[in-house]
Simulated assay, not measured.
Amino acid sequence: MPGDRLSQDERRAIGVGLADGLGYAEIARRLDRPTSTVSREVTRNGGPRGYRAEHAHHATAYRARRRTPLDRPTVPGEEPKVLEFIGRLTDTMVANGVPRMAARVLARLYTTDEPSLTAAQLVRQLQVSPASISKAIGYLEELEMVERGRAPQSRREHYIIADDVWMRAWITSARANASWAETAREGAALFDPGTPAGARLQQMARFFTQLSDDMSGGTSSAAADDIATILAALLHARRPLTAAELADALDWAPERVAEALGDAETYAPFTDPLALERPTPTAYAVTAAPGRLTPAQRSALLS
């Protein structure tokens, strides 16, 4: 039922529910529909006081006749399967956080055979207002996904897909993740990693640091060298050491040791076959990576 169009009987039930003073949630529960479906239906058709079931039913049918299948405006010559694909491409972008109108514009720019499209062409193809196109283009330009220019001997602006659009989006996303990581690190330091809030923020910082580094090519060579040095120091010591003891032995600043230890924990897959472990909350040691040896092999080696 959810996802299907409302029937005429359901619209009558909505009208009765509104007349009885029921809220959208209660009406939706009785119809086994999402609350958003009921609220959208009422809002589109006169609001709580002006809703009329028969009028709403005929108005919805009229709107459906004006639109093409899948609610995708057509362009002369486009095949149904092309429209279906454009719809799926749009929905995929929306599901991944792109505003719907921006997604519709981007999908059109991607699937046109023309080198570019003007605002007037986008208005005509998408059957929306010029203001909607302008807002969508502004959003896409801010993300550097669309560029504007003028064709020779033309005063009209044309919009085109940037050649490296997805690389730009990738870099923008990596920067955003780095920003999340930096803010979380500040919070962890403020609340103290030993507190529940600080621990959560520290975990958040590690997650976004790894995500950002993975997207931008991994840790820097300097960071990788520091991780290797920390592991070598612990392996050489053959006993657990605290961060302070490591800083003294390596003659490093405490912040550098803390960062290297954090990176070693965050990038555990890359330190294989070694792994960092904490025998106590403040001490660090080196052990074999968890998945490298089976329990039987570990037992045999210690016997």
Rank of each mutant, 00 (worst) to 15 (best):
R30L: 01
A28I: 06
T35G: 02
A53L: 02
P73W: 02
D20H: 09
P48S: 07
V82G: 05
V16S: 09
R66I: 04
D91E: 15
G23P: 15
R11K: 12
G15C: 09
G50M: 10
E78M: 07
L83D: 10
G15M: 12
R12E: 02
T60N: 14
G17E: 01
Y24A: 10
I86F: 03
P76F: 00
T60G: 15
A25F: 06
A28L: 07
R65M: 11
A25Q: 15
F85R: 13
Y24G: 15
D20N: 09
V75L: 07
L31G: 04
R72S: 02
H58V: 10
A61L: 15
D9R: 15
L31I: 04
G23Q: 13
V42L: 04
R72C: 02
R30D: 00
G23K: 14
G17R: 15
R12G: 01
R63I: 02
R29M: 05
G47H: 09
R33S: 00
T37Q: 05
A64S: 14
D20F: 04
V16P: 03
L31N: 08
R40D: 00
R40S: 00
S36E: 10
R33I: 01
R67W: 02
E78C: 03
D9N: 14
G77H: 06
G21F: 03
I86M: 11
G23V: 15
T35P: 02
S36H: 05
V38W: 02
R49Q: 14
I27M: 01
V38Q: 06
V38F: 00
L83N: 12
D32H: 11
E10P: 03
H57T: 07
H58W: 10
A53S: 12
P80V: 09
P80Y: 05
R33Y: 00
I27A: 01
Y62Q: 14
T68K: 11
P73L: 03
R44F: 01
L70E: 05
T60R: 15
E26R: 15
Y24Q: 09
E26I: 13
G21A: 07
T43P: 03
E79D: 08
I27S: 02
E26N: 10
A61G: 11
V38N: 06
R52M: 04
Y24I: 08
R67P: 00
R29E: 05
R52E: 04
F85G: 07
R44A: 05
V16F: 08
A53K: 07
K81S: 11
P73H: 04
P69W: 04
G47I: 04
S39I: 05
A56I: 11
T92K: 12
P80L: 11
P76G: 09
R40V: 00
G21M: 07
R49L: 13
F85P: 03
I86W: 04
L31R: 14
T92I: 12
T68W: 07
I27C: 01
V42F: 01
P34A: 07
